[in-house]
């Protein structure tokens, strides 16, 4: 597989999610992720960037810096914003066995991200939120 480091800043706007998703997906494909993993990544990007657009900036839109590092069997994407501190991983997980009347939607997005992505990390780095998704690149057979 190819080793690569790339980064690009985008305005944190909902309507740019498809563009951000395409930017990351193209690199993910080049890095050798399985098509199913690329779909998982797209689902996760939608949730993570939507979160940043919703919560991170009190006066939207700020920027989201997307930073990619691939190599050594890993494909890692950092989403960095300078909004208010927000750790999505602290959100309570929803009860997915609740029946329809009790079903609550809060936390479902991040719950999905944790289920489809191999590693999910958050850190507050000075004035920045750094949210990282890591996928393991499948080893080529033969």
């Amino acid at each position: 597989m190819q080793e690569a480091r790339e980064k690009k800043a985008f305005p944190a706007k909902m309507e740019l999610i498809p563009e951000i998703s395409k930017y990351v997906s193209d690199l993910a494909e080049k890095a050798g992720l399985h098509p199913k993993q690329v779909i998982h990544l797209q689902v996760a990007i939608d949730e993570v960037v939507a979160n940043i657009c919703h919560y991170a900036y009190q006066k939207p839109p700020g920027e989201v810096l997307v930073q990619i590092e691939s190599g050594k069997g890993r494909f890692a994407v950092d989403f960095i914003d300078e909004g208010i501190p927000f750790d999505p991983l602290m959100v309570d997980e929803p009860d997915i066995n609740a029946d329809i009347a009790e079903r609550e939607m809060g936390g479902l997005g991040i719950f999905l991200v944790r289920r489809v992505i191999d590693e999910v990390h958050y850190k507050r780095d000075k004035s920045k939120n750094v949210f990282t998704l890591v996928l393991y690149v499948p080893k080529l057979k033969g």
Binding site: A50, I100, M105, L108, G109, L112
Partner: peptide, 20 residues
């Protein structure tokens, strides 16, 4: 349909409640 996110699930849940 290529994929669905949690925002899409939310709309379907609301529709299901309405239908019920």
């Amino acid at each position: 349909l290529e994929y669905i996110s949690s925002a899409g699930l939310r709309v379907l849940l609301i529709a299901q409640k309405k239908v019920n």
